[in-house]
Every structure is written in structure tokens, then in C-alpha cells.
Design a protein around this nucleic acid. Structure first.
Lengths: 228, 228
DNA sequence: CGGTACGTTGATTAGAATCAACACAAGTGG
DNA sequence: CCACTTGTGTTGATTCTAATCAACGTACCG
């Protein structure tokens, strides 16, 4: 059995001042997997598209967005990562996304290991990484259907149901992201997101309290129907 | 070292008559990996969304499309698979796509192995599978940017350059798929694909011979510029 | 108490979808 | 071999969805 460790080499890490070296995970078999905890503030960047991929990350608290930019600034957020989610795994040398915190957040960073090491190692940790990769793939593929073929209302409905399930408020969602982030995730503009939400409220599907990041789901069946 | 085999159990395979049991691959270390070759005709289905995922596949010749359907028939083609590409890997019990041949095609099928087995095994074959998964993920993530944020012309330009690179005609592409397939891959309609191609021809970016599946790339630099 | 994000709403435009017709090549069968 | 069908691709007219441009609310923060 081979153990995968994150070294405590702070000299290689960005923003070393923010790092504390804390063992945070264990494999199923009990072998220690060391990670370094990093605390982030709103909009703080964890890594940028093109950075050397020395680490990958796991969300402990808060939420992270990973995104790509077009040369003229158009942005596509490929995913929002919630506690427990792993992000930043790369096969090449570089990160292909920018990762930023949506608000205050905590992540654990693990020293990156090569695909070869990963496939060859027989630890529970390796299994976890491969599973995370597969989950990312499934989400990405599912999201392509949304981006390519769904209308604005359908996109929003799908998004709300998905977030409700992941954030686990039964009849409401406390969104960790702005309308702009939602728009850039769904391939829409802020205005269209806002209008769609307003329309859903008028139709009684949802309710929008004064605190706009909370959304009450009033008619999940109808939302699921829109979800197609 | 553990060897991953596809058994010759034809009784479990669909369309057993079409199958011939042929060893077709070898791991880098020389250990035999048995696969079963399957020959397909135009539009023949390899597996459907929801089918039990007993095998995964590698394209030998021809091309394959994998797609998802919305309840009302809208279709999203997530990827075209060319010779050498692996498709149909699943972590769950079911295929999440439908796979069909674009024209006459040959694939090798491998008995599916669990993610656990995969991550735990140390063979070159396992590495290959993980690498294929990673490549799918990268393609999917790249495609999300296209679907969410690019205009019709940009989508077509990106698509043509990508296909040109994969099919390796230096200044032309022999597309294996119909305009409808292209549309369903790029999140457009057939009409828009056709109009965009015509417009590119008028602008001297490409040339469309009588055989409409061949496209001559006349100004790659301009196409790349559109690609953004 | 402003000031500054962020969010909503309104008016208009633009880009792609839709609806409809036609062109063209490849088969098919008489 | 030729009419005829069929599948595929193109083009045109029109509609419609979402983007854009612009203004205004509202909540939060120093």
C-alpha cells in the first residue's frame, strides 16, 4: 500500500501566510493523508487558468467557482463546488480553470500526484480521486445538455432543483452565489436570470424574500416539469 | 500486476451475431487485453441511455456519436469519437448516453470494470482508462465554454479547427457527420449551421465542394481568430 | 448618511429559431 | 435507363427568445 501525502512545503504554495499545516484526512484504511488548510475571503483567487497545477483541493466550508474566460471577457463558470467536493485535478501541467471563493471559504490543498501514480496506487485515496473525476465528468456532461438545448426558464429550474438538492434546504435554497455567477454558469445574462426568477415568482413556482439569495421553492413538481 | 480481460461471453453481448471474438489490444507491458470487435452500420445503436453498462468501447474505424435526449426530443451530442477514442465508461450501473455509429464503423468492446478495480489495479490498461476519462472531462469542460458563451460563427469555427486537427487533413476536413449532427453538437439548428458555413464561404474562410461533407479550410488564421 | 454592490425592470435590438420551400444527389424499382 | 422517392442540405421570410442598453431600487457597509 502506498500512501499519498501532501508535503508541508509552504515555499511552493501561493499566499504562504494564509496557510496552516493541519492533517485533515485519513484514508479508509487509516493511512494518514496530509493536507494544508487554506482560508479564503470573498472573490479570493485560489489558482488561475494557466497556473502550474501543483495542488488539487477539497472544499471544507463555503463555496468555490471554477471558470474559464474568452479573450474578450465572456466567462463560463463550469461548476460550483460545495463542501466535500474536490476540484483542480489536472492531467497536464497547468490548471485549465480559474478558481475563486464565492464568499468566505475553507479548502484543503493536496499536493498533486500524477495520473500514473494515481492509477498505479491502490489506496482508498486514489479511489476517491478517480471517483471525484468521474463525478465532475458526469456533471459536465449533464450540464452540456442544459447549455446546448434548454431555454432560460428550463435552465433556471434545473439549476434551482440541483442546488436545493445539494444544499439540502428542503423547501428553500440559500444560494452562495450572485445572479451574475448564476448567469455565467447557465449561459445567460444577469437580466435574463433576474427576469426568469421574477416570472417564476409570479407563476407561484418560487418565492423571493427580501434577502435575494434565499429562494423558497413553492412548487417543486412544476419546477421538475420545467426541468424536462 | 493484474491483467484486465474482456471475457468471451457472447451470451451477455447484444447482437451476438455481429460479434467476433478477437484479441485486439495489448497493454504497454505486453499483458494481453482481450476485446470483442463489433462492426456497425450507419446509425446503428451501440447502447442506449439507461442500458446496463456491461462494456465500454474503443473506436477502431469510423466514428461514433454519444448523445442525450430531452423528453421532447431535443438532442445534445456530447462528443464525436474517432479511431483510438474510448467511450462508454460509467461509474454507475447505467449508460448515461446513447451511442450510435455515424457511418460504417468498427469498435472493440471491453468488459466493464468497476472504478474500484480500476483505481486499485496497477496495470497500464488502468492508466489508459483513467487518462481517457480525464480527456473526456477536458473536452466536456472546453465544450461548455463553447455552448454557453460562443456565437454561431464562433462555434462553427471552433468545431472546424478541432475536427481538422483530429482528422488530420491539413487544409481540409472530411466530416463523418451530417449537418444535423453538427447542429446537435454545437447547440444550434441545421439551418444556422448551413447559413454559417455559407457565410464563411462568402468570406473566403472556407470552401464548400459539391460533396458537402468535405470542407476546405482556406483561411485558418481567420478561423482561429473567430475561435476567440 | 451617503456610497457602492447587487438586483430588478423597461425599451429596444440582434441573433438564432422556426416555418416553409426548394435544390440536389443517391438510390430504387419499374 | 429513367421517373420517382428519399434523405440531406440550402435558402428565404418571419417570429421569438434572450441580449443589449439604460434607468432605477434596495440592501449592505464603512
Amino acid at each position: 500500500m502506498q500512501t499519498v501525502l501532501a508535503t508541508s512545503g509552504l515555499s511552493h504554495a501561493p499566499n504562504a501566510a494564509l496557510l496552516r499545516s493541519i492533517p485533515t484526512a485519513r484514508t479508509a484504511t487509516g493511512a494518514p493523508v496530509l493536507g494544508t488548510t487554506r482560508v479564503l475571503t470573498k472573490d479570493e483567487q485560489i489558482f488561475a487558468e494557466g497556473d502550474r497545477a501543483a495542488y488539487f483541493y477539497k472544499v471544507v466550508s463555503g463555496a468555490i467557482r471554477t471558470s474559464k474566460l474568452l479573450s474578450d471577457g465572456r466567462r463560463q463558470i463550469d461548476a460550483f463546488h460545495l463542501p466535500g467536493d474536490i476540484f483542480g485535478i489536472e492531467s497536464g501541467e497547468e490548471h485549465r480553470f480559474t478558481a475563486e471563493a464565492l464568499g468566505t471559504a475553507t479548502v484543503v490543498m493536496y499536493r498533486r500526484c500524477s495520473l500514473e501514480t494515481l492509477a498505479a496506487s491502490d489506496g482508498a485515496f486514489a479511489r476517491q480521486i478517480v471517483a471525484a473525476m468521474m463525478r465532475s465528468l458526469e456533471r459536465a456532461q449533464h450540464h452540456m445538455l442544459l447549455l446546448g438545448r434548454k431555454s432560460a426558464m428550463e435552465k433556471i429550474a434545473t439549476f434551482l432543483l440541483d442546488m436545493a438538492q445539494r444544499i439540502a434546504g428542503d423547501d428553500h435554497v440559500d444560494l452562495p452565489m450572485s445572479r451574475t455567477d448564476i448567469a455565467d454558469h447557465l449561459g445567460l445574462t444577469v437580466e435574463t436570470v433576474s427576469r426568469s426568477l421574477t416570472q417564476m415568482e409570479r407563476q407561484g413556482l418560487i418565492e423571493l424574500p427580501a434577502y435575494r439569495r434565499t429562494i423558497m421553492l413553492r412548487n417543486k413538481a412544476a419546477l421538475r416539469h420545467l426541468d424536462a
